[in-house]
């Protein structure tokens, strides 16, 4: 079975879709999701949902006018110009530093990890 996974970074964040896991059932899906989607980035909560249980309303569906597009906003900047030395490595590192800082501040604020 395929389960879609939504990760919430801190208590005050929304759950965001981060990918899926293949698992035989919900219990195993919850175990796998923790490693697959919350091992490197901070997570306060994960929603693990059977894929076929998700129904969707699309902005392009006939009669639907939600005013949105199918594009979504993403956390990380994507303007990677070329030329400078291994800039993408520095960028990746900066992202990780930021995620680590967030993880730490979440811990010290939250208390109940």
């Amino acid at each position: 079975m395929i389960f879609e996974v939504f990760r919430q970074e801190t208590e005050s964040d929304y759950h965001e879709h981060v990918g899926n896991v293949h698992a035989p059932d919900e219990e195993m899906a919850r175990l796998f999701a923790q490693v697959m989607h919350a091992r490197r980035k901070p997570a306060n909560s994960l929603w693990v949902v059977p894929k076929e249980e998700i129904s969707e309303v699309d902005a392009d569906d006939p009669g639907v006018a939600m005013g949105g597009t199918t594009q979504k906003a993403y956390r990380w900047a994507t303007n990677y110009s070329t030329g400078r030395m291994a800039e993408e490595i520095e960028a990746s590192e900066a992202e990780q530093v930021e995620a680590e800082a967030r993880r730490r501040s979440t811990r010290s604020e939250g208390g109940d990890d």
């Binding site: 490197r40 990380w76 490595i89 990746s92 590192e93 992202e95 990780q96 995620a99």
Partner: peptide, 14 residues
């Protein structure tokens, strides 16, 4: 979307 997460992680590898 997948590339986002890959790049996030991969920096440490290099």
């Amino acid at each position: 979307h997948a590339i986002d997460k890959i790049c996030f992680e991969e920096g440490f590898h290099i």
